[in-house]
Nucleic acid binder design. Structure first.
Length: 484
DNA sequence: AAGGGACACAACCGCATTTTG
DNA sequence: TCAAAATGCGGTTGTGTCCCT
């Protein structure tokens, strides 16, 4: 169907350009070795470029575009064939963390590799991770990107509304890594209600944007069970990815840079801080990442390797539905589920980020910002927050994503469509929200979350749970009120 | 053995940008 | 200066193969 259409469109397009004669017999589909030979011969004689001339000056019935692509992706002499090496894979992940879906730029960094190759690799990898409910960036990459961002953008901008967007992209935003979570307790909590998770039927999720951080998971019991067991074996690593030194064990993947490498904890922060990945349409709805809407049943084929490759993997996150399910669970479990969900949500980090930025702008002290304290949140200007939230209504905004994810996770979504959910999130963020329940749930979840000491008590600065909660409540409440 | 899913890969499409006349 | 052409880029789709059930 599509083929036919595209054939027609090509003919039409070329025809429009007065090149109908050639268009009538332009060949499409796989290249033959004979065609390759013709093209190679042509390039040898005339050099690269002027691809449309190939068709004119040779018997090759291919459009210029096709020739260029064929040459660039397959015939170029400097192409490196074969699988990506672990180092290359590692590099791709790093580059993607920094650049997002800039395949051409990534290819430029990887001699002999093509953008198409990289793109295919990445998309496959994304699909795999998505299916497994795993985050996309390993913690060390997050760290590395964060550090490099700090080095290259060692300027703290004022939270000027106009400049905020660019700050998000370019600054070492989201210094969440400095926020430390204590996970051991969470691990235990997770265990306590894992049986329910294990019975969660996979189904479509209406999570529109929150997957920027981690893929919601549609794991069948077996997979999840294994993942959970792996997770349970984890030391205190899940969210403390900022402290690379905290990783007691090296990755246990077949290769440390394997695309499947363990991705310990990005369940919270699958997107590296300061990364462009989120912001350059990286997670556009057309992106594979948007997959939560099209979740397939996960493959079991990785389970065999999990003990090796995924032993340090992050715990697969519950589906939004699972959160929903858990919300409907008895109170204690519900609290835990919210806690868990929130840990993997982004609202808190977004809020903290905002507060950090605000605070940083005040005293221009990176030292202080390096230890993100909840005290910062107390300084939160609701007015500014309001503005920022408006800014973050941009679906590409990490904060928006984060907020959306939180709201999603605390909103019963059974049977809700993606659009419904998006509208809901927008209604909240845009100040039109009328449903207080999600907010309350989110606040409640944050309350549980903070109350369980998930939050950076290492630096002894997290005792202001009521303040944070109030801030969040005020924030959400105000948004809601504003809409009314 | 058959069917289905996952994967890798190739190729095309549409759009944006750059170049050219 | 502008329109057309060429080129570049990112997204998407199609296909063959392998593996698992």
């Amino acid at each position: 169907m599509r083929k036919g259409q595209s054939d027609l469109s090509l003919v039409e397009e070329v025809g429009r350009r007065g090149n109908m004669r050639e268009s009538c017999h332009l060949k499409k589909g796989p290249w033959t070795s004979a065609e390759d030979a013709i093209l190679v011969d042509y390039v040898k004689k005339h050099g690269e470029g002027n691809w449309n001339a190939v068709q004119k000056h040779s018997e090759l019935s291919r459009c210029g575009k096709s020739c260029r692509l064929r040459w660039a992706n397959h015939l170029r002499p400097d192409l490196k064939k074969g699988m990506f090496t672990p180092e290359e894979e590692r590099r791709i992940v790093e580059l993607h963390a920094k650049l997002g879906n800039k395949w051409a730029r990534m290819a430029a960094e990887l001699p002999g590799r093509t953008d198409n190759e990289i793109k295919n690799f990445w998309n496959t990898r994304i699909k795999r991770l998505q299916r497994a409910g795993l985050p996309i960036y390993p913690p060390d990459v997050c760290l590395q990107v964060n550090l490099s961002q700090e080095e290259s953008h060692n300027v703290v901008s004022t939270p000027n509304q106009d400049s905020f967007g660019s700050n998000l992209v370019q600054s070492d935003a989201f210094e969440i890594p400095h926020v430390e979570f204590e996970n051991l307790e969470l691990n235990q909590q997770f265990l306590s209600y894992s049986p329910e998770l294990l019975n969660i039927p996979p189904k479509t999720i209406g999570l529109s944007h929150g997957y920027g951080h981690v893929f919601p998971m549609a794991c069948p019991p077996k997979h999840l069970q294994e993942s959970v067991s792996n997770y349970m074996s984890l030391p205190n690593q899940m969210t403390d990815f900022a402290c690379k030194e905290n990783f007691d064990e090296p990755y246990k993947s077949s290769s440390p840079y394997d695309s499947d490498f363990s991705t310990n904890d990005q369940s919270s922060f699958g997107i590296p801080p300061g990364s462009d990945a989120l912001l350059n349409s990286n997670f556009s709805p057309s992106e594979p990442l948007s997959g939560p809407m099209n979740l397939e049943l996960p493959s079991y084929q990785y389970s065999d390797n999990q003990q090796d490759s995924w032993v340090n993997s992050s715990v697969p996150l519950p589906l939004v539905e699972s959160v929903d399910t858990l919300i409907q669970s008895p109170p204690m479990k519900r609290a835990k589920s919210e806690c868990f969900a929130l840990q993997n949500s982004g609202l808190l980090e977004a809020v903290l980020y905002e507060s950090k930025k605000l605070n940083s702008s005040k005293d221009d002290s990176r030292q202080q910002s390096s230890n993100l304290m909840l005290d910062d949140v107390a300084d939160f200007h609701l007015k500014d927050c309001e503005l920022e939230f408006e800014a973050h209504c941009d679906p590409n905004s990490p904060s928006a994503l984060s907020a959306a994810s939180v709201l999603s996770e605390h909103t019963p979504v059974s049977g809700s469509s993606l659009d419904d959910e998006s509208q809901f999130v927008e209604s909240i963020l845009g100040g039109n929200g009328k449903n207080e329940t999600p907010n309350q749930m989110a606040i409640s979840g944050l309350d549980d979350f903070l109350g369980r000491g998930q939050f950076g008590h290492d630096n002894g600065c997290v005792n202001d749970k009521p303040i944070v909660t109030d801030v969040i409540a005020a924030l959400l409440g105000e948004d809601t009120c504003c809409g009314n």
